[in-house]
Amino acid sequence: MSDEWAPGILARARARVTGAVSVPAAEPVPPGLAAVPDGPRTWLLPSWPDGATPAVLEQYELAPMPLDRSGQARRVLAAALRCCWANLDDAPWPGVPAPVPAVLDVYAGMTRGDAALAGRWATGELRRLADTGWLVLDEARGVVRTGPRTALWPHEALGPLRDLLRRMPGPSREALGDE
């Protein structure tokens, strides 16, 4: 192996460490990274050969990297998708911004027990999902939208997800800030 590392190699290695990062849209995209345009910025994400996804692990019954409270993470992501993927006939990305209270309201409808505690857990989960590119969270404005990773979901995987979201109750009018 050569001691000289091409800049493209280091850029891809770096992208694996940093996860989803956005750069100004005018910046060149290093080859081998997926570019997801987002207005004035572009999200850079690692991409995989021949459209493969880590779901290939399921075929081989191999455990993926463990995730704390993965059920909760999935439910919070589902609640956010229910609110931000407004038109299910379209793609989930870029979706529409939804108020965080609306997402927490949908999540509360999926859980039992202490609603205030569930809300606190879910808020932490929203941040974690935003850190990893599944959601884009604007805490100052109190809104959340789908993340750039959803732009890379293969079309054929969207059908079951659409069916699930159609069956999920949406946020209450109060949570949406309607009178």
Binding site: W48, P49, A52, P54, V56, A63, P64
Partner: peptide
Amino acid sequence: VAAYMAVEHAA
């Protein structure tokens, strides 16, 4: 591709 994805993503 399967081997690549497995070594990169399995725990």
